[in-house]
Design a binder for these strands. Structure first.
Lengths: 198, 198
DNA sequence: CCTACCGATCGGTAGG
DNA sequence: CCTACCGATCGGTAGG
């Protein structure tokens, strides 16, 4: 702890605006959210936001970039934490589910508002999402090659596992019937069953 | 075959408008679709649409109502077609997946544009969707009670099975790598594995 | 089924 | 950070 006077963090205002935008985009949708709505949520007028952000589109881009970066990093950490393919798969699914439980709103906005990203940014996002999917596909393929998984179709199994995790963002509630850990564990288990693991 | 002159079907115009609206709502989103867009798709001007439909909202309601009615009917048929709970579950999953493959656009609009339904209609839709979910839950609970299924959590298993089917609407393409039948079969299989069936 | 148009909304800028 | 405002868009109506 330094004894120097704490300088009020400068980026804070912007962070608050992004957070408000996230909540509104998730709740009402990108198009239905106005700059005045976002301004009201951070106690200023719509036009004042332009001192902190370049445009409404900018807010959407920032939300999406942060979101995909988080999920890709968590995935990488999960896969690198062990050599056993079954355990890698379980941890990757758990990371996937944890993300969709903890960052529900980001997950929503990330998929539902993709079409409102401008061309260039949408292409980047789609490509990163493809990378993420590929990570799972390689994992499952390796598991099949090692005789650890038995699936009717790798592609369909991967889609199924990813989609069931995505669905968590829809119904999960902090403080609800299940904790994040419980959901992550159950989904990891279900994924392994679906893969006919071991 | 009657020899009387065929009278040009009267409801046809409206059906074409609804079909065009469905495609546009799915592609661009409800808010981003204008009445002029829909008009252009059926070779008329936006204002002319009001001779056939009461409002843009009306089109959304009609699309959603038809969609949920179809899926509920298919589900009922599947469940009533056999007494064996394992087979009922498989057929219900297959019906669920078939719907999401064959009616991709309806499925999209049905979930993504729910928030743009006016209050009263949204309440009805949410209730019908709850009914649908309950149908699956009862099926799984019965299977567990009969010792045919073994799950960590009925609720999580049902969410997972439904969500993986919903995901089909995102990637499925007519004439693509998998036929509707293949997808339905594989997903039925995956659901049974996930339930630890038999 | 069309043109003309109303009333309202909205992202963003000007200019303090 | 605010008020005033521009320019454009849009659902729906009027009145043929």
């Amino acid at each position: 702890m330094s004894t120097l006077t704490r300088i009020p963090p400068r980026g804070d205002r912007r962070a608050g605006i992004v957070a408000a935008a996230l909540e509104l985009f998730a709740d009402k949708g990108y198009l239905a959210t106005t700059m005045d709505d976002i301004g009201r949520a951070v106690a200023m007028r719509g036009p004042s936001l332009y001192k902190h952000v370049a445009s409404k589109q900018d807010l959407l881009v920032e939300i999406m970039e942060r979101s995909i970066a988080t999920v890709l990093r968590d995935h990488r950490i999960a896969v690198e934490s062990t050599d056993d393919v079954r355990e890698q798969l379980r941890r990757a699914v758990e990371a996937h589910v944890r993300f969709h439980a903890r960052h529900r709103l980001e997950a929503f906005v990330g998929t539902r508002e993709l079409r409102h990203l401008d061309e260039a940014n949408r292409a980047v996002m789609l490509s990163l999402r493809k990378d993420y999917e590929s990570g799972f596909r390689e994992l499952v393929e390796r598991g099949v090659a090692q005789g650890r998984f038995r699936v009717g179709s790798v592609k369909l199994a991967v889609y199924s596992i990813l989609d069931m995790g995505v669905g968590v963002a829809v119904w999960f509630r902090e403080g609800g019937e299940f904790s994040v850990d419980e959901v992550a564990y159950h989904y990891g288990d279900q994924a392994l069953r679906l893969l006919g693991a071991d």
